[in-house]
């Protein structure tokens, strides 16, 4: 998760309570927002005696996380009114244990109220497919138009060297649900977004085999990666004409 969001947001409050750990942060330009939830089910055990916000610089956190082995068991601990977050990595065979503390910071964060939205179009597709489309089209242009109709979803762009488009049609993979593409639509939508941000969101592709795109005309796009016990959501403000 940290790897997936660290290029978008730098200083974040990890809000801990009985439900788990949540994070909401906007990028510096206020164009994109990250919203993450790791429910208690993601941890074993999880204990939180009182609500607490852990202000963490993600670059610092990454420096420490890189010291962990892929299969290590990670324990995160913070005291009441903490100055630091304690991280312990234990190898699966328990023959190696490393321990780090990283300094916490006070982050005065504006929490945005995200209205409950009934989106006009909800598209599920393999996350690798979405990543490929964003990468391919970003070679041609800074922006992509996403046009959803009952026939399919079309990603198109135009730039100095020419233009390009990718159209996906609904498709069911009976063996692997995450490889299916589905489109639920109440009305057609057509919106334009910055590819730079979408390419950035796709760093979360390794967290989930499928991704959900939720669109309504003239509102921010929601890109959601569902995780076993939580989610990673990205909101992106559209580009709007005159």
């Amino acid at each position: 998760v940290v790897e997936a969001i660290k290029d978008l947001v730098q200083d974040c409050n990890f809000d801990c309570n009985d439900d788990g750990i949540q994070l909401q942060a906007m990028d510096n330009s206020h164009v994109a927002l990250v919203s993450m939830k790791l429910s208690t089910g993601a941890f074993s055990p999880f204990r939180c005696d009182r609500n607490i916000a852990l202000g963490i610089n993600l670059n610092s956190l990454m420096k420490v996380l890189r010291a962990a082995g892929n299969d290590d068991i990670l324990t995160l601990k913070a005291e009441d009114q903490p100055d630091s977050l304690n991280l312990v990595f234990e190898s699966p065979g328990q023959d190696r244990m490393s321990e780090y503390d990283i300094k916490l910071m006070d982050i005065d964060q504006e929490h945005l109220g995200i209205p409950e939205t009934e989106y006009a179009a909800t598209i599920s597709l393999p996350s690798a497919e979405f990543q490929r489309i964003c990468r391919d089209l970003s070679a041609l242009s800074e922006s992509v138009s996403i046009e959803a109709s009952k026939d399919g979803v079309k990603f198109s762009c135009s730039g100095d060297i020419g233009n390009g488009s990718v159209t996906l049609r609904p498709h069911t993979n009976v063996e692997d649900e995450s490889k299916s593409t589905s489109i639920a639509l109440t009305e057609p939508v057509n919106l334009t977004f910055s590819l730079k941000y979408l390419v950035n969101f796709c760093k979360a592709s390794s967290l989930s085999g499928s991704v959900q795109l939720c669109l309504s005309n003239e509102v921010p796009l929601l890109v959601e990666f569902k995780m076993g016990a939580g989610y990673l959501r990205f909101y992106l403000a559209p580009k709007i004409g005159d």
Partner: peptide, 14 residues
């Protein structure tokens, strides 16, 4: 060309 909107115009600050 279309202009980039910011989230503040869609989401409410508390």
């Amino acid at each position: 060309p279309p202009k980039q909107a910011t989230l503040g115009s869609f989401f409410k600050l508390p």
